[in-house]
C-alpha cells in the first residue's frame, strides 16, 4: 500500500461529496458580503452534507464572530471552513495500533446490518498480512445466510485462517474457541466478525455482551479493541448508534465505510463533536486495499473541495 496512493484514493472517494458541497459553495460565495442571508445559506449547505443542525450552527456561529459583514471569496470560505472542520476532526484521527505482544490482539467488529463489517474485516486482514502479521478471522455472524461463506472467501484472498461454526450456533462459543486457538498458535491478531444488529434490540445487544464476557474468561483484557463499523450514508441516526454501542460494548473506535459513494460523510464531523470517539479507518471501495487510515486535514479539505 503506497502512501502516495492515499491522497488520490481518498480524493477520488470524496469527489462526490466535494462536488456537491463545493457546487453549492460556489453558487453562494463568488464574492459577496457575509450577511445573515448568506450565513443561512451556508448553514443549509452544511446541513445538506449531513453535518447535522447543531454542528452546522456551531460552525456558522464561528463564522459570524470573525467574518460577519466582510466581503469574502469562495476560496476564503473553503479555507476557513476546512480549518473549522479539521479542528473538530484532528483529535479523533487515531489509527488502530495492534499490540503484537498480546498474541493475539483481539478486535471485535460490531455494527448495524449492512454497514460493511465483513468487508472491513477482510480488508483489515489484508492490511495486517501486508504488515507482516498473522491475523486469524472468526466468523461469528452465525445468523445471516451465507455470512460465513462470505468471510471464508476473504480468508482465501488474504491467506488468513477462518474459524467458523454451523448456522445459528452460539456466536460466543465460537469466539471462545477462536481465541483458544489463536492463543495456542500465537496469532498476532484475532478479528471477530459479528452479525449485524440494530442498536435498539436489547436482546441482540446482550448477545454481544456475552461474546465479550466469554472472551474475558480466557483473557481479562480482551477484546483489546471494539471497532464499530458505520455506513457513511447514515444520517443523524449514526449518533444514536454510536451512543448505544458505546454504552453496551465499550466501542473503542470507528471505521467509516462507503465514503467512495456517499455524497456526504459529514456525519463523521457530528460524531467527532458528540463523542470524541477515535476514527481509525475509512472504507473507500470494495477491494482489499480500499481501507485507509483516517486523516483529519485531508478529509476536511476534501469535504469542502480544496
Amino acid at each position: 500500500m503506497a502512501l502516495g496512493g492515499f491522497f488520490s484514493r481518498l480524493k477520488q472517494g470524496l469527489a462526490r461529496s466535494t462536488a456537491k458541497l463545493s457546487e453549492g459553495l460556489g453558487t453562494v460565495f463568488v464574492k459577496r458580503k457575509l450577511d445573515d442571508a448568506a450565513l443561512e445559506e451556508l448553514e443549509d449547505l452544511l446541513i445538506g452534507a449531513d453535518l447535522g443542525t447543531d454542528v452546522a450552527r456551531r460552525v456558522i456561529a464561528a463564522f459570524r464572530r470573525s467574518r460577519f459583514g466582510r466581503e469574502v471569496s469562495e476560496h476564503e470560505i473553503r479555507e476557513s471552513l476546512a480549518e473549522e472542520i479539521a479542528a473538530i476532526l484532528r483529535p479523533v484521527a487515531i489509527p488502530l495500533v495492534i499490540d503484537r505482544a498480546l498474541k493475539p490482539h483481539v478486535v471485535l467488529v460490531v455494527g448495524v446490518n449492512g454497514t460493511g463489517k465483513t468487508t472491513t474485516v477482510g480488508k483489515l486482514a489484508q492490511s495486517y498480512t501486508e504488515q507482516g502479521m498473522r491475523p486469524m478471522l472468526a466468523a461469528c455472524d452465525t445468523f445471516r445466510a451465507a455470512a460465513v461463506e462470505q468471510l471464508q472467501v476473504w480468508g482465501q484472498r488474504t491467506g488468513a485462517p477462518v474459524m467458523a461454526a454451523p448456522a445459528n450456533s452460539d456466536a460466543a462459543g465460537l469466539a471462545f474457541d477462536a481465541l483458544t486457538r489463536a492463543r495456542a498458535e500465537g496469532f498476532d491478531v484475532l478479528l471477530i466478525d459479528t452479525a449485524g444488529r440494530l442498536h435498539n434490540k436489547a436482546a441482540l445487544m446482550g448477545e454481544l455482551q456475552k461474546i465479550i464476557r466469554v472472551l474475558r474468561k480466557q483473557d481479562p483484557s480482551a477484546p483489546h479493541s471494539v471497532l464499530l463499523v458505520l455506513d457513511a450514508t447514515t444520517g443523524q441516526n449514526a449518533l444514536q448508534q454510536v451512543n448505544v454501542f458505546k454504552e453496551m460494548v465499550d466501542v473503542t473506535g470507528l471505521a467509516v465505510t462507503k465514503l467512495d459513494g456517499s455524497a456526504r460523510g459529514g456525519i463523521v464531523v457530528a460524531l467527532a463533536e458528540a463523542f470524541a470517539m477515535p476514527v481509525h479507518a475509512v472504507g473507500v471501495g470494495e477491494q482489499a486495499g480500499d481501507l485507509r487510515a483516517f486523516d483529519a486535514g485531508d478529509f476536511a479539505r476534501g469535504l469542502v473541495g480544496l
Partner: peptide, 12 residues
C-alpha cells in the same frame, strides 16, 4: 433503501 439513510437518500 435503508431507513437510516441521511440527506444522501434523495441523491441516490
Amino acid at each position: 433503501v435503508d431507513a437510516m439513510t441521511g440527506q444522501d437518500a434523495v441523491n441516490t
